[in-house]
Simulated scan of single mutants.
Amino acid sequence: MPRGGKPCGQRTGGPVDKRLVVVTGGTRGVGAGIARAFAEAGDEVVVCARRPPPAPLDGCAFHPLDLRDPPAVRAFFGRLPRLDVLVNNAGGAPYRLLTGADAERHARVIDLNLVTPLTASLAAYDRLRRARGSVVMIGSVSGTRPSPGTAAYGAAKAGLENLARSMAMEWAPDVRVNTLVAGMVRTELSHLHYGDRDGIGAVSRTVPLGRLAAPADIGGAAVFLASEAAAYITGASLLVHGGGERPAFLDAATADDGKER
């Protein structure tokens, strides 16, 4: 048990114990799915991003915030009356091959996907510690394998997973920190990555479960990691990728009919 006899993230029941959850970048796509999942679980949810959501998110409040501005981030968390869960979701990257001329652009991708979650977590720490709360980092399978075209993003997500493990050890037993490693997700921007309906269908068939994740799938997993059911889970990485990617060699190999000789 942590000091005070209350496991990280545990509620004692009743309306007065309604949790306050902050989801960064929670205005669309995966972030909106995460915000909705916490709201549906009965939590008070605040989403923060530079721009408001295209449509209001039921049960969620919006706060404009540039997460790349450390003083603004510290001021935002400093004004919160309390904080039980922080979901570091803000991030992403355009497709961009590695070239020397683009060094500054790649550095900005790393800043958004790695430095920004660190900044937010440090700013939130005192309130999370008082609440015996938890942090959920939204990672990516791009951080677990080569990511041509999004190399800086993949490197940042790999670093984020390592950061979460170190943070979990340093902040235990007061704050739990875990990473949700997301696979391919079907959002309103999927066409930019996978093409039209046929392209999305073809990509979906490469996933063992036969489809891309929905934002709600990622949201449900995030709610679990922040819940009492995960009270003994910290420093972990939960793979939410539909079974992973089929190894390319299985389709490229020229094997015989499998009969013994």
Rank of each mutant, 00 (worst) to 15 (best):
G100H: 08
V181L: 11
G244K: 06
G59S: 05
A168H: 01
G31A: 09
A168I: 00
E260A: 11
A55G: 06
G154Y: 13
A255S: 15
E245N: 03
L128D: 06
P54F: 02
A41Q: 07
I34M: 13
F62G: 05
R246M: 14
E161S: 10
V23D: 09
A164P: 00
L118H: 09
H63W: 15
S190P: 01
D196V: 09
P146F: 09
D84P: 04
L122M: 06
L180S: 08
T150A: 11
L225S: 04
T119A: 11
A172S: 14
S237L: 10
P2F: 11
S134G: 10
R105Y: 06
A120K: 03
F62E: 08
L180H: 06
S227M: 06
A37C: 03
F77A: 02
R186W: 01
G219I: 07
E245Q: 07
L225E: 12
G13V: 08
R261P: 15
L86N: 07
H63G: 05
A49I: 07
V223W: 05
K18S: 02
V16N: 13
G139T: 02
A123T: 03
N88K: 09
N113V: 03
A230P: 01
T119L: 14
A253R: 14
A152V: 04
P146D: 09
L65A: 12
T119V: 15
V109F: 14
S140A: 13
R68Q: 10
E44G: 01
K18R: 14
K259H: 13
N89L: 08
R186V: 01
R246K: 07
V47I: 11
G149M: 05
V240S: 13
